[in-house]
């Protein structure tokens, strides 16, 4: 195992985060805070409780998930896409480093950033809404697993993308709608049929449901199923990356 290489990529990627602090940390915190102010403090105070939880507190897990998913994807995608675009990837490809080590460096850094961001948003939420966390260890577990899984997914997008538009299209056109419709702002019990059944085909429902359970002990779907879905998606991403490196798809000619 080439630990020095993993470390080098990780440090290099994290230093990019610190260099672009406003864009990578401050801006997602600000935009999520706006949700807390508008939906939590302003509109939320006029809405009834959901499953005994105030609306402001109810939406916290979903909003953190929203940031976590989009930031993990765009961060990991950009991290590998940019060296491809600027031509500096030659160095990584010519280094004595395996595909697993490349993934550990890039995805590890993207996931770390998302975890830090998730925790910062959680702390910021405290300023606007009162909430408590019933299962803190499970909350951290969900946070870490989701960050890693969606950073892997973002890494695939970065490898696949051959222009800047493709880099943005999946986070904006797929992940954002799935999150909004995945129960970030409502409990799926509130949906009429057939939407209640159809929504179960949305993978993000399982993420938000599991994450919300770790906060308040309530879930739309069984927590074990949520965990299973995350692991399943993670394995799918790992297998896809393995295939990309093996075939050299969009990496090597």
């Amino acid at each position: 195992m080439n630990f020095y290489a993993i470390r080098a990529i990780y440090i290099f990627e994290m230093s990019r985060t610190w260099r672009t602090l406003m864009q990578s940390i401050a801006s997602p915190i600000l935009s999520t805070s706006l949700y807390f102010v508008v939906f939590g403090a302003a509109i939320g105070s006029r809405m009834g409780e959901i499953d005994g939880i105030s609306y402001g507190a109810f939406i916290i897990p979903g909003l953190i998930m929203l940031s976590l998913l989009s930031e993990s994807i765009s961060n990991a995608a950009f991290g590998i896409y940019f060296p491809k675009f600027s031509g500096t990837l030659y160095e990584v490809l010519s280094a004595p480093i395996s595909s697993l080590e490349i993934v550990m460096g890039y995805v590890g850094a993207a996931a770390s950033k998302s975890i830090i961001l998730g925790l910062l948003i959680l702390m910021t939420a405290q300023l606007f809404v009162d909430y408590e966390i019933m299962h803190p260890l499970w909350m951290i577990t969900f946070l870490i697993l989701t960050s890693i899984t969606f950073s892997l997914f973002g890494f695939i997008i970065g490898l696949w993308a051959d222009d800047f538009q493709k880099l943005q299209i999946i986070p904006l056109m797929v992940v954002m709608p799935l999150t909004f419709l995945g129960g970030a702002f409502y409990s799926i019990d509130m949906l009429p049929e057939p939407w209640q059944t159809l929504t179960l085909f949305n993978p993000v429902v399982y993420l938000i449901s599991g994450f919300r359970w770790s906060f308040y002990g309530i879930a739309d779907v069984n927590v074990a199923i949520s965990l299973g879905m995350i692991f399943g998606f993670m394995l799918l991403c790992l297998a896809t990356i393995q295939w990309i490196f093996k075939t050299g798809y969009r990496l090597k000619t």
């Binding site: 080439n2 020095y4 290489a5 990529i9 290099f12 260099r19 280094a95």
Partner: peptide, 28 residues
């Protein structure tokens, strides 16, 4: 390898990018 194209990580510092290369090739 010194490639033909001047491909560099534009916003990184000279020292960091050289240290990055050394690490990538598995050296302390």
């Amino acid at each position: 390898l010194v490639p033909q194209e001047l491909s560099t990580a534009a916003f990184e510092s000279v020292l960091n990018t050289v240290n990055f290369s050394r690490g990538l090739f598995g050296k302390a």
